[in-house]
């Protein structure tokens, strides 16, 4: 059974002054992007854990939303709800917060690859900090987290002290060639908490992706590869003059087929635009 994804959408966003889930990120919301990136890296389902009554932006149909019915207990409560919800679907989960606009699927894969039979949690110490909100957890930890919560614990770090945690250094993370090639600065864990951080993040260059068009979509000199700077599939299509209507689909890195313009892209992605009619 493949790993699942848990994205925590709760939190007050008090320093940001606006709900992080709704922040615009190059044409999509930040939550949509984070959910999409996690979904690209895990084989199982993705669930969003939200605060009671929290308004969320539009999400893909296959993303579940569960309510954290106890307000004010912080991300540890979200961790408990998410792990409990996914316990019967997969042994492993990647959990993260919403505010990781540079999260890369290769980071998620690298973290999940850190599990072995003797590990309950895989947590990077990246960019000088522990990263419990961009980490992997065994879903059987749900009762442990719930017990700690009942005992008054509020920080995910306390869970890590109570289970078999494997810590991953920058060097260990970057020993993965795919991650080293696509996110050498480990910006995957760069979160945004203030308007200034948000503005600075938005000002960063867009991901460079490789585009190839096939068949009739390659007419008028469109054959061969080209490079495009774009954060979403929709922006990429626009950049090469393709309309993502029912006659067109895109293959993401030769694997996932989609025409959802909100599909998030990251550095190193390869996009193949194809005719949706594969008859022959």
């Amino acid at each position: 059974m493949g790993a699942v994804g848990i994205v925590l959408a709760g939190g007050r966003s008090s320093r940001m002054g606006a709900p992080k889930a709704h922040l615009e990120w190059h044409g999509v919301t930040l939550l949509r992007r984070t959910v999409g990136i996690v979904g690209r890296a895990v084989e199982g389902d993705v669930v969003v854990v939200r605060a009671p009554g929290q308004d969320l932006p539009d999400l893909p149909d296959d993303v579940e939303v569960v309510d954290d019915d106890q307000e004010g207990l912080g991300p540890m409560q979200g961790l408990a709800v998410g792990l409990r919800h996914m316990a019967d679907r997969a042994a492993l989960a990647f959990l993260c917060s919403t505010d990781l606009p540079f999260l890369h699927p290769n980071y998620v894969r690298r973290v999940l690859a850190g599990f072995d039979d003797d590990t309950d949690a895989v947590v990077p110490r990246a960019r000088g900090h522990r990263q419990p909100l961009a980490a992997g957890y065994r879903t059987t930890l749900a009762p442990t987290v719930e017990r700690l919560l009942a005992d008054g614990a509020r920080k995910p770090a306390m869970v890590l002290d109570a289970c078999r945690t494997r810590w991953l250094s920058d060097e260990e993370l970057l020993a993965d060639p795919a991650l080293a090639a696509t996110d050498p600065e480990l910006t995957s864990v760069r979160n945004i908490n203030t308007p200034e951080e948000y503005d600075a993040a938005l000002a960063e260059p867009l991901p460079q992706v490789t585009v190839e068009r096939f068949g009739t979509l390659a007419r008028d000199g469109g054959r061969g590869e080209c490079q495009v700077a774009a954060a979403t599939l929709g922006a990429t299509a626009d950049a090469v003059g393709i309309t993502l209507d029912r006659h067109v689909v895109a293959a993401l890195n030769g694997e996932r087929i989609t025409r959802d313009p909100a599909t998030p892209l990251v550095a190193g992605d390869r996009i193949a635009f194809l005719s949706a009619d594969a008859g022959g």
């Binding site: 096939f214 068949g215 009739t216």
Partner: peptide
């Protein structure tokens, strides 16, 4: 219209490179 453009412009052989790109 666009639903048959593939067949008109390249024929079914237009599948070959596309299928190769998606394994």
């Amino acid at each position: 219209g666009p639903a048959t453009a593939k067949y008109r412009e390249l024929g079914t052989l237009g599948n070959l490179l596309a299928f190769n790109a998606i394994n």
